[in-house]
């Protein structure tokens, strides 16, 4: 079994078999992570570059750890802002890294489309670690993995993504992946946070969190960007918490069995109350562990795939 593509740029148009394969492979690696010696020699001799053009702590750490667990050689490259402002163009940077003979590039960039561009200028296998507001496929995969781990299935589940959908790269990857796996996906947030044309994505749209909670099995709660959103998209974080915050009271009232996911980092008291965050801490922290397993699975499947 192998993936149908040489790259993981997003979850749009990724076939069900591929997603299934990644999730199943991750289950194997999840076991490895529980062993006393958490390392396998699978990618020994492979060189991977983590090309991070945007600040990221957890995603980079997660990828780096996954690479080390697979015995790959890794290099980290971090920069922020426009490549032009820093003197060397993105293309030149990539060409230089390419000349060092790397096998895979894991890329995070604030401009959408950069992973796709990488496939045009590089021979390495490309994994998108988040591009603009576009996609963040490994986050989508680990969210699906975490739901499946907890509930046992994805097909037929009602999953609602809550928060600033318009500025989120996690939302789209979740929508594509979950829909492919047969889940019913919806989004919930204040109308300013629901992007243009959302209805074209085959998702139900809620502006009422109580209704969304009552009608869904799973909530994937996105982080509210305090500095960016308040005053522009929402009047205040206080108002957001009052009308959209996930609280224990709301859970009790609407759906005591609802499963709460959060891709982190959490703003306690904004999108989610401390009480709920702590109550759901098992799965939220599990998401982090699962993230390493998912990234190991993706790296392994792409890294060992022979080019056709």
């Amino acid at each position: 079994m192998s993936l149908s593509s040489n790259h993981l740029l997003g979850l749009k148009d990724v076939p069900k078999e591929d997603i299934q394969l990644i999730l199943d492979t991750a289950t194997t690696f999840r076991e490895v992570l529980e062993r006393p010696i958490k390392k396998v020699p699978t990618l020994q001799g492979k060189t991977i570059v983590n090309l991070f053009y945007e600040n990221s702590t957890r995603t980079r750490l997660s990828f780096e750890l996954a690479q080390k667990r697979l015995s790959a050689d890794t290099i980290n490259f971090s920069k922020s802002g426009s490549s032009a402002a820093k003197g060397e163009s993105f293309k030149d940077t990539v060409r230089n890294i390419e000349a060092m003979k790397v096998d895979m590039i894991v890329c995070r960039h604030e401009s959408a489309g950069i992973p796709k561009y990488l496939t045009q200028i590089s021979n390495a296998k490309i994994i998108n670690a988040g591009d603009g507001r576009h996609e963040h496929p490994t986050q989508g995969l680990l969210d699906m993995y975490s739901i499946r781990e907890k509930v046992g299935r994805l097909a037929g589940l009602n999953v609602c993504i809550v928060g600033d959908i318009g500025h989120s790269r996690v939302a789209l990857s979740n929508i594509y992946g979950l829909q492919t796996m047969g889940a019913n996906v919806s989004v919930c947030g204040p109308s300013t946070m629901i992007p243009w044309g959302m209805e074209d994505f085959g998702v139900k749209i809620y502006n009422n969190i109580d209704k969304a909670m009552a009608e869904n099995d799973v909530l994937n709660v996105l982080r509210i960007q305090l500095e960016r959103d308040a005053g522009v998209l929402i009047p205040s974080v206080r108002e957001y918490h009052t009308y959209f915050g996930i609280t224990q009271e709301r859970i009790q009232k609407n759906n005591p069995n609802i499963l709460i996911l959060h891709p982190g980092p959490i703003n306690r008291g904004v999108e989610i109350s401390s009480e709920v965050a702590d109550g759901s801490s098992q799965i939220i922290l599990n998401q982090v562990t699962n993230g390493v397993a998912i990234r190991m699975a993706v790296l392994y499947l792409l890294g060992t795939k022979s080019e056709e």
Partner: peptide, 15 residues
């Protein structure tokens, strides 16, 4: 341009 395509591509848009 702002449309469902800009939402899909994740690029900031101009309405």
């Amino acid at each position: 341009n702002e449309s469902s395509i800009s939402t899909e591509l994740g690029l900031p848009s101009i309405p």
